[in-house]
Design a protein around this nucleic acid. Structure first.
Lengths: 346, 346
DNA sequence: TTGTAAGCGTTATCAG
DNA sequence: CTGATAACGCTTACAA
């Protein structure tokens, strides 16, 4: 008959004729314990099939080796790569991830934050939902000094760190690139300005126009959910514009909208990039399938996730201090592809 | 000065002059407790800012309200949708998800399984890595009667349930469709036969050939990782074949390989579907971007994830019984698109 | 270097 | 319907 009770440190202690306290220390390689007893403990643990009980441990020690991850959606290329990066970092350092999605809904974000808090995560990694206005719902974390790291869609906050890229610079560069290709009426497809990423991309776009003495026109700035539908709608909008007002380029704040806009315009007979050039953002897999391939900004979700998680863990381990670094900016590289090349290269 | 100790059921008990046991019961809406006291308890809990301590609860009650999810990779369209579906179901029932990825490596899968076991997940949702040979590493779960649900890449096992689609039938239908379009030399791009999904898709393909009196040719069956590279390689292979041996259609076990094969063949000047028709599997977003759009099998990762998680949770709640149902088969629908339409429709 | 003993906050058992 | 009390398995002062 199989024993049903768990194997505890007491079993190991009894087996070795030492105290449970010693076993507890030995198990975590506490240097206070002699090398020899530590070895014996490790062996006994293995042979008895001991598995530490994380609840007992968490209950007593008040930390859980678990990080909460709160994202808008799990199923986007960027987000799932970011998660993969976090999982990697966490796994490497003996941490686990509890993951929840807000589905772009603030209310669900609030509920999830509460759950994470309740589950006593050691730290929180969060990317805000589309329409989150403020971060009151994170107050419990701040109050208890549970470190919070924002990534991608961040929020300015003195006591936490943000991990992302320089969206303004990236948007500036990509717009400048379009200008250098001879485009003069560049349209921008943007997202909700509540989110820094879209706000900054718009700013970079406007700055580039300004620096090149091109006017900003409200008629060439569309804002929306950047979905497939939004991309197709933008195309309709463009086609409905009188010929002389039509943009000669589109810079979209994400690849999805760019690609579906392209597809619709192509169906309508426009040539890309001859009639209208395109640039997107994210380097999503679809950007390499659309023809012509889409010029875009490449930045690795994997790196962002990895960096954010590693940084959080280092903070938890006392190796670094979150509160001294407000932002970590990773590099983003422009990937120039045929969709934006009006001046054919040699 | 903020109190640092947690608010416990004892605080509530003292506040209401009742016992902690009553509070504990009241908090979980135990019908034993009078409606009135239950209400008072709920109110007191709220006003004192009580947060239940899940560790204490887990330690005592021996269950964690946490499900382990073990997947090959987090960052594929199918997998992230499946996770989204699971997260949804879990969230709805008050469960949390601990997620880890094996990166297609058995060894990491083993380590992750051990961690999940150690974290005392209430149940496990798993999709096997590319080269997992057996499931010895899940024995601890079986021994302790911790329910395991396989999804997508499953493994036959008496005491667990598998959730997926009928891959053989799907592959049969898609191959039959290609045949109905006049294709006679249909190539198959397959994956590792250790995984049921690829094994079954191959079987369906072969069965369809057989039923239509078409020969199966080893020259037209390539197996590999079904990656972008693998797709491009397959194209090279096709191009290197003497003209009379070239396939007039390709059925790929996933969309990625199909799409990259198409792209390479198109670059080489082949026309799709005129010279060679295409069908894939998964209904990945890229299948709707490639031109011509790719005929494929649509089955929802979201539903699979949702079904698997819901089923697991129902089992945990005693509503259903895992051990009586060996497999749940969800529907998969063929999505016919231009890539396979040799006989133009009216 | 090791042992003793007091919790961590909850739930289960048994009694009323 | 409610209460007292003993665990659950581990960590950590404090003592030896």
């Amino acid at each position: 008959m199989p024993e049903d009770r768990e194997v505890t440190i007491y079993d190991i202690a009894r087996y070795l004729n030492i105290s449970a306290a010693t076993v507890s220390r030995g198990l975590k390689n506490n240097p206070m314990i002699s090398k020899n007893t530590r070895k014996k403990i490790a062996e006994a643990a293995k042979s008895l099939g001991y598995q530490s009980n994380t609840f007992a441990s968490s209950l007593r020690s008040r930390h859980t080796h678990t990080l909460g991850v709160l994202v808008p959606r799990l199923n986007s290329h960027f987000m799932s790569s970011a998660l993969a990066g976090m999982e990697n970092a966490a796994n490497r350092h003996g941490y686990n991830l509890i993951i929840a999605q807000s589905l772009e809904d603030v209310e669900k974000e609030k509920r999830n934050a509460a759950t994470m808090f309740n589950k006593r995560v050691d730290g929180l990694l969060i990317s805000l939902s589309y329409n989150t206005q403020d971060i009151h719902h994170l107050e419990p974390f701040f109050k208890r000094k549970i470190p919070v790291v924002f990534f991608d869609r961040v929020y300015p906050h003195d006591e936490s760190t943000s991990v992302g890229i320089n969206n303004q610079e990236a948007a500036y560069n990509i717009t400048k690139h379009l200008i250098s290709q001879g485009c003069r009426k560049i349209m921008h497809l943007g997202g909700n300005l509540l989110r820094n990423v879209y706000q900054e991309r718009l700013a970079g776009y406007r700055k580039a126009l300004e620096d090149h003495h091109l006017p900003f026109s409200k008629k060439l700035y569309l804002t929306g959910p950047l979905s497939e539908q939004a991309g197709a709608d933008a195309a309709r909008y463009i086609l409905d514009l009188p010929a002389e007002e039509r943009p000669d380029a589109v810079f979209s704040a994400n690849d999805t909208a760019a690609v579906y806009c392209m597809l619709t315009l192509k169906t309508a007979g426009l040539r890309i990039p001859e009639d209208i050039a395109f640039a997107g953002f994210n380097n999503d897999p679809i950007s390499r399938v659309i023809e012509p391939n889409l010029t875009t900004m490449d930045y690795s979700g994997d790196s962002i996730g990895n960096t954010a998680a590693t940084y959080l863990i280092n903070h938890l381990k006392g190796i670094s201090n979150l509160y001294t670094t407000n932002a970590i900016t990773l590099r983003a590289d422009m990937v120039i592809r045929a969709s934006s090349l009006k001046n054919k290269l040699p």
